[in-house]
Design a protein around this nucleic acid. Structure first.
Lengths: 295, 295
DNA sequence: GTTTCGGATTAGGATAGCTAATCGATTCTA
DNA sequence: TAGAATCGATTAGCTATCCTAATCCGAAAC
């Protein structure tokens, strides 16, 4: 019972390209270059002996053959991905505990976590939000997301999101009575500080400005409080891009100036190496990176 | 709408291994080594984070996870292979003409051709059986199967079956009144000749026997007549293995002695290069090699 | 008419995948 | 009970697939 199957990886490329009607977008989705998709499709068309796409100059269309081929190919891919999810899910009963800092939990993780829950409805996901570092040997934690330098011995560490630091404030600041145009204008406003982040002094040095008293203002011990104060219009915060992306998108905050510090720290996914082979941990890890890439 | 799909080639290996419950047999089917299948399955199990097979000492069994996973995987593969066949079939209306010699047509091709017809029922397959060489420019032939040295300029040539020459005769010869045990016993029997094949003289030289009159006997212009005479018990033929495999399997002929000539000639699939990219020609070519491998 | 957009093409490099050889465990055979 | 055969695992190294970077080309947009 031997089947004649075309190159399967090329089929995946075909499905994505047909869905987007664009090799470039398909390449994005598959995390490869446009050239790779072009090659794969060409190979598939040669294998089949007939063209699947009509290349117009600016647009892409399926040929009749391509239109006929797409539904079953998509169906097969769906079957496989659903079966795979089901398999992992079946092995993933019980709880899954994620440990992370309160700021990251509230500003990034929790707003997205529902999508993970939808994919694995039977999984009992718990978020343990604490600024304390986890001890995997003593605590029942499956995966941690930590902010730092990425150096934790004996643990597997994967960089999830890189940091990017810039000032944010309430939208009214841009056209208020003392509009913020140049970094120097900061001296007329309250500065918000938090313990973990880099300091205003460092940022001012990078922005090459003097004359701002970088110690003025309010100070909090967790970034989410600092950001909440900024949202409420109580001052200007030096924010990590990861944490404010949603607030900026929703118009609750605006980004000020174009000076940006790349920041040497990052958010890392962390656990003992063998944890990563457990299906539910792997599923969570993969999902986290999927979400991170979508940012 | 990005899917999380396991490595697709590994899935194909899983499906085959699960079907045979044997890595070795799966490897045969996929035309790779046992080690390749072992690697693929291992990679898949690691990707999923759970074992799919239980390896017992001499036997292989699916784990529960494997049992749950198999049906959808198989279904997806079926979907793909059926859709692919359908696609090629749709593009393959009209006739498909194969040109080959009468002996090959009657002894090898026609007995198998029904399986091809079943796969592509809409295709109108014609066998043009002639000892004349085809002129693709003048005749409406899609693919030829020729016996010879493999050297035809300007045509794409692929070796389908290698030749292997040995004497065959009616089964009763083995225990008749003059039983054939040693090659020298040939002198008591009728020799059957045909024009195309190598001669008895060459064979006797290879078998290092003298004293046989290699010109005695009946002579035909096509191998199938020679073989028919042998089947009817009229003598002993020097046969090409390809042509007599079915007759031997059915007990109509037996192979005599263990002297075998490797033969420098072979059966080749032949057509102008660009013919091979046409779906129906490609389908036929692939099927021919599939059948040839099954021999 | 210059720029931009999207796919094709080319050559070169990375990695996935395969093979050959060998091992170890088990079972069959004599 | 020894030896042979079977079947999967493992290792190291090679091959071929696949991918990338750079560039090209044609059409459309500005």
């Amino acid at each position: 019972m031997s089947r004649r199957l075309p190159p399967l990886n090329a089929l995946r490329a075909f499905e994505a390209a047909a869905r987007h009607l664009s090799f470039t977008k398909a390449a994005d989705e598959l995390h490869v270059t446009q050239a790779a998709v072009s090659h794969q499709i060409k190979a598939l068309e040669e294998w089949l002996g007939l063209p699947l796409f009509r290349r117009m100059n600016r647009a892409l269309a399926l040929t009749e053959a391509g239109q006929n081929y797409l539904p079953p190919v998509r169906e097969a891919m769906d079957t496989l991905s659903q079966a795979t999810d089901r398999l992992i899910r079946a092995d993933s009963s019980g709880t899954l505990t994620i440990s992370t800092m309160p700021s990251f939990a509230s500003k990034w993780l929790v707003p997205r976590l529902m999508r993970f829950q939808n994919r694995f409805p039977d999984m009992d996901v718990r978020v343990q939000s604490t600024s304390q570092v986890v001890d995997f040997a003593r605590q029942d934690v499956d995966l941690a997301i930590r902010f730092g330098s990425g150096h934790w011995p004996d643990l597997r560490v994967e960089r999830l999101l890189t940091e990017d630091i810039y000032p944010v404030g309430h939208p009214s600041l841009l056209n208020g009575d003392r509009p913020l145009v140049n970094p120097e204008d900061l001296c007329h406003h309250t500065l918000l500080h938090d313990d973990y982040n880099i300091s205003w002094a460092v940022w001012c040095r990078a922005a090459r400005i003097d004359g701002v008293d970088t110690e003025r203002g309010l100070r909090f011990d967790d970034s989410s409080f600092t950001l909440q104060a900024a949202i409420n219009g109580h001052g200007i915060a030096l924010a990590r891009g990861v944490l404010v992306a949603d607030d900026i998108a929703a118009g609750r905050l605006v980004r000020l100036f174009d000076v940006r510090l790349p920041g040497s720290l990052a958010y890392y996914v962390v656990a003992p190496p063998h944890y990563f082979s457990r299906p539910k941990v792997k599923a969570l890890r993969d999902w986290l990176f999927e979400e991170a890439e979508a940012t």
